[in-house]
Design a protein around this nucleic acid. Structure first.
Lengths: 368, 368
DNA sequence: CTGTTAGCGCATTCAA
DNA sequence: TTGAATGCGCTAACAG
């Protein structure tokens, strides 16, 4: 009664795959019973179950077809993560890696998988989002992209966006970039610094390197870059300093090399800034390299403050003074929000930050 | 003729979702036409398409249900990556991060998504694998796990395993760990070193820290740890040295902290080893820390060789001499093999490695 | 360019 | 404990 068994699928890929029905027939049971053997062990005798499973194995039946099962149950067993930038970027930037790690830890607990979506860019933004078999989304964009958020919102699934405006019909999670940045700048001001260089994450995510495009900033709803810049200025204003004491460069791609060049320019000006406010630790490391290039001592001649507190921050010499943000917890919290969506209105979480003073900041060299 | 429109799904989650048929009716077209509006723009007039899409938008229809589409087409549009260890581990170890980055770069090119699977451990290994809606698998296990590979093989999908025995019915990708390790050890021997400490990746992946369990090694089909150890011994043998000149400790979890402790023990022995062979750069960094703890100069008093050549290797002081392996390319090659599976027999790729000499190795202090 | 037809493979009622 | 029937939502033939 058993149909031909063996390396069926192996020897010839064109053969129709074994289905639950085939298995049921081969085992001489009904489809339900075969299904239960996989999904509800308590619904049939252990003996029968063992027999069915063994026959399944013989037939090369690996278990219920996941796609059919999903369609039937309406559950995908996975959540999607969308990066605004390239897929690869998610595995390049220490910040997003830590975030993903947090997401992964919760997925693991929930027994869910993690689907990382490619953004093929411009025209067809949303294609991958539209076609993803997931139970919810996390949107992690350095640069707020309406198209991405809209595509996610259209799916009507539990979703969380990181650093997105609260006007979106989804939960958000963020830190208070502005006051965190203010604190960083205030720390330097307290040390007697009066002339600052800023290394900014690119405001538009368009690969631009050069002086900060302040005029463009007004257009933006929400990017960490803009908020952090405002925070820096808040601190200056509170100390009665002028905006002109703040020279800012955008650095594309959060790259150490580009930051090094930008910092070099910043530090070649006269009078030279005595402190650099970097919007990420990677940019700060670039500043450290530039200081070395110029023979400047850190923190003797120059102070540097980073942002994020990635592992590298304390590994580097001198260890970076930086704004710690709970990157991993950010990912974990986002994932939790997807798995257990709040009833009613979306939630908007703000996670705490903390200035961590290490060895890269000191008294201003020209302080009284 | 248009059915009720508005915040349907928004206001009440329990409402039945809009389907392609609903859309077709609302737009006064057939299902095919509605489907084509999304999948085959060239099959209907742009005008009609625009109208259908607009109505879809109004109805809150985000596009064809991904699960149904997958079932119908038989394609998932994503590939799965399985880690033998915890899901989180994949985002912790620099080695696997680089690997994932390589995988992601190819996925991006192919317009596919990347599904990262949790391994809930022991008993139910394979559950996630069995239920994953993917078009192929990549297995990345530090420790060769039959259960995982078997579960993947059972799915009969294009699959690639990293560092797995070639007896598996799937393609594999690897480096020549043994000869790479031999080269590393030979480098030290050439510098006059005669007494070595080895910092080994844990052989069984069971969290053990302590002297290398040589007796257990025989049981293992294939782990980088075992092969590298053999390579070290090959070099010693070729130089006429005894195995007793090689003191080895296993370090669990590829952790710098644990490596530091293990290296401390290694370096506290008399006569003290003049060189440390570390099976990963992280372990090598641990050795560097231990050297600092003991007031040993590297490479003056002690030489250290790593493995992998992760970014940290050249950032650390002194920069690590290490075995470079193409981690990202490993991921990319694996992904390519999944997207374009070889006809006929599985392929078994061996990627090249290269010893990179930097500043952590020098002449043996007791050399003639 | 449009419409009709027929499953994709499964989980789940419900009745036996 | 088991079996028969139903449809999840969609796409791909094919005929108009």
């Amino acid at each position: 009664m058993v149909t031909s068994v063996g390396q069926d699928g192996q020897s010839d890929g064109s053969q129709r795959a074994v289905t639950l029905l085939d298995l049921a027939r081969a085992a001489g049971v009904s489809r339900t019973t075969a299904s239960n053997a996989f999904n509800r062990p308590d619904q049939l005798s252990p003996k029968l179950r063992a027999r069915v499973l063994e026959i399944a194995d013989k037939m090369g039946y690996a278990g219920p077809n996941p796609m059919a099962r999903m369609l039937r149950t309406g559950r995908a067993g996975s959540i999607g993560v969308v990066f605004g930038k390239s897929l690869t970027y998610g595995f390049t930037d220490p910040t997003s890696i830590a975030f993903l790690k947090g997401v992964a830890s919760v997925c693991e607990k929930e027994g869910a998988s993690l689907l990382i979506l490619p953004e093929t860019g411009e025209a067809q933004v949303g294609n991958a989002i539209q076609g993803a078999a997931v139970d919810g989304f996390i949107v992690y964009c350095m640069h707020y992209l309406t198209a991405v958020n809209d595509a996610v919102a259209a799916r009507q699934l539990p979703s969380v966006a990181v650093s997105a405006p609260e006007t979106m019909p989804m939960s958000t999670i963020d830190i208070d970039d502005r006051s965190a940045a203010r604190e960083a700048a205030a720390h330097l001001i307290g040390l007697g610094h009066r002339r600052f260089g800023v290394l900014a994450l690119d405001v538009l995510g368009d690969g631009y390197d050069g002086p900060l495009r302040i005029d463009q900033m007004a257009k933006l709803e929400c990017t960490p870059s803009v908020d952090r810049y405002r925070g820096y200025r808040d601190a200056l204003a509170a100390a009665g300093l002028q905006d002109t004491d703040l020279q800012a460069f955008e650095v594309s791609g959060n790259s150490e090399d580009q930051a090094r060049k930008a910092a070099f320019k910043l530090l070649s000006q006269r009078p030279r800034p005595t402190a650099i406010l970097a919007m990420s630790d990677r940019l700060a490391v670039g500043a450290l390299l530039a200081a070395t290039d110029l023979g400047l001592d850190v923190p003797g001649d120059l102070s540097v403050v980073g942002f994020d507190d990635i592992p590298l921050a304390k590994a580097v010499t001198p260890a970076l003074t930086t704004v710690h943000q709970p990157l991993e917890e950010k990912g974990a919290a986002a994932a939790r929000l997807v798995f257990h969506p709040p009833k009613g209105r979306p939630r908007h979480l703000i996670l705490p930050t903390e200035l961590v003073v290490r060895d890269s900041t000191g008294l201003a060299p020209d302080a009284p």
